[in-house]
Structures are given as C-alpha cells and as structure tokens.
Computed example of a mutant assay.
Amino acid sequence: MPSLINDQLPPVRHYEAAPLTKEQLDYVDLPTIDISSFTASADPNVRSQLVAQVRSAIAKYGFFYVLNHGLSTAQTVRMFDIADVPFSDVDDDEKKKYQSRLKETGTQQGYKPRQYHHIDNGIRDQIEIYSLNHDVNKSGHPAALRPLLPEIEQFAYHNHVNVLYPILRLVELHKWEDMSESSGHTDIGSLTLLYSQPIAALQIRTKDGSWKWVKHIENAIVVNAGDAIEFLSGGLYSATIHRVVQPPADQRAYTRLGLFYFVLATEDVKLKPLNSPILQRRADIWLKERFQGAEVPTMAEWRKGRTKSDGNAELKASATNLGVEEEYLNGVLIKHYV
C-alpha cells in the first residue's frame, strides 16, 4: 500500500486515544494470526499452515487477531484521525444532509444518528456511525471528508486485497470490483475487520454462554465471522455473537472511536452451503433447520433486510432460551442476546 504518511497529505486533527484501563477484566484468549508469512513466503506448506490456523480460529472462537497486516502504527493512527473527522469536524446541520435512509433502502451509506435503534424498555442507542462504500464516489460526503477520500479508498483496497485475501479462501465470492457496501448480535457479512482500539467495550459470547472481554493489542486487527460465513459453510463455522457494553469506569469519559472494514459476499451470491463434498453432506439438514422452508436469500437481500430491521423489529422472548429475543426475517430466525 502506498505510504499514507507524507507532507503532501491534507492536514487532519489528531484523535487522542484513551489510556488503557487499569481494571482487571476477564479477557478471552483469542488466537493471533501473523499474515506476513503468507506474503513473505511462496512455500505452499507455509500458506497451508496459515489456512489451517485461520480455519481453527474461526471454528473455535469466530474471532482472532491479525498482526503484521501491512500498515505501520503511524499509518493506522492516521486512519483513526481520518475516522474521527465525520464526527468532530462536521456540524449537525451538515450531518442531516448525509443521513442514511436505513429503513427505506436498507443502505448504510452516510450517518446513522444516535438513538436510532431501540435497545430495550424504551432505551435507545448512543452510537453514531458514518459508513461509506469501498467505491468512495458512490455517494456524497461532508466537505471536511472529501479531501481524504483517496486515502480512505486506499485503506479499503488494502484491507480487501492485502488482509482479506490471505485469510479468506473464498475470494471468488468476494471480488473487490463486485463487492457491495459495507444488543448481542451477529454481523451481516462474511468477515468484519476491526482495528483494535484501547477502550474496553467489546465482548464475545463463548461456547459455554459466558461473556468475555476482547483485549486491545496495539496495531492489531480483530477479525470476526459473520452471517454469510455461517450460511456459506452450512453452519460449519458459526457467526460469532458479540456485543458492546459500557466501558470500565476509568474509560467512560472518553469517546470510543471504531475503525471497521465490513466484508460482504458479491451481491448476487445465494447464501447457501458451497458445493464441497464436506459441506454437501450436511447441507440439506442445515438448510431445513436454518431456513425452515424459506427461500435462501442472496447477499443483497440479506444485507438490505437486516439493515432495515436492525433496531426496528419487534422482538419476542424465546420460548426455549432464557436471555434470548427472536425475530424472523423472511422466514429466517434471528436471535438477539440480552
């Protein structure tokens, strides 16, 4: 990736990250994948080992760290500075001009304002989001962000080609040129790449049903599996249930800034088990259990449906699972963990 640090780049106000918490938290022990070995070696055995590591990490946890991903610490810091611009350098009136039409179109491009999602008992969320497509010219952007679009596009391309491709072997379903936009829940797409930041708030639900914190690792990417991976693998790999909770007391005065790259399969891909001998042996049973006779959606249909319903659907308490609320999206059961 071309250097993002030079004197000719537009100046950006520095985002000061929070100090690490001093509280003793129950962290999950996630695997760490060094993807530099994929690009540094042409040895097929080395690459096979990497694939095996990723497969094991997704099967056991659905979450893992990626190190040596090709961006220096300075480059990552620069991207966090850029990520803060839509929130700190854009006033409320201009934000309204670029607000997402989530319920109408199922498209996330633009701003999702605070208090858009209903959480529970009249409580609404306090998360503000700015989303843009990997094709940065697909929609308009606030004036403060426009000079930074070339860097954002480079960043997206780097994540897709230099991070995603080495760890995801389904590249024919996730081509750069074809890709769409990007409570306890699962993510919509295949993988989510989250650049680690110091405020402790992300938790994952482990196999035994407990919630554990995800620890910050400097200049690491936290990767997690989403719905599309579960569907394409016929449940061999599960979408990971996770949530964002209130940070520890010594970090609550700081703003938690997230830097994400969401990976979705190509829009017309049917989210059904791939044509593989291993998956086909379980595909029919899994399809009946998961879709219960409903039409298997395409990536575009699932993306739009989940986006429209998120925070707006009427949830009902599960009759069989305590602490679980359920909704049906086009006949497909979705669980939310409270």
Rank of each mutant, 00 (worst) to 15 (best):
M1W: 02
S3D: 01
T32W: 15
V46I: 01
S56N: 04
A59T: 00
G62T: 04
V66E: 02
V66S: 05
L67R: 14
G70A: 00
L71G: 01
L71H: 00
D84K: 15
S88M: 15
D92Y: 11
D93A: 15
K95W: 08
Q99R: 15
R101S: 14
T105R: 12
G106D: 03
Y116Q: 03
D120T: 06
I123Q: 13
Q126Y: 15
S131V: 13
S131H: 13
L132T: 07
D135M: 06
V136N: 12
N137W: 11
G140Q: 10
R146S: 07
R146M: 07
L148C: 11
L148E: 10
F155R: 05
N159Q: 06
N162W: 14
Y165G: 00
L194P: 02
L194V: 12
Y195E: 02
S196T: 00
K207D: 06
G209Q: 04
S210Q: 11
W211N: 00
V214A: 09
K215V: 14
E218L: 07
I221G: 01
G235Y: 05
G235N: 07
V245M: 08
Q246R: 08
Q246P: 03
L257E: 08
L259E: 01
L259C: 05
F262R: 11
K270I: 15
L271V: 13
K272D: 06
L274Q: 13
Q280L: 13
R281E: 10
I285L: 05
W286Y: 05
L287C: 11
E289P: 01
R290V: 14
N312E: 11
Y328I: 04
V332L: 00
Y337F: 10
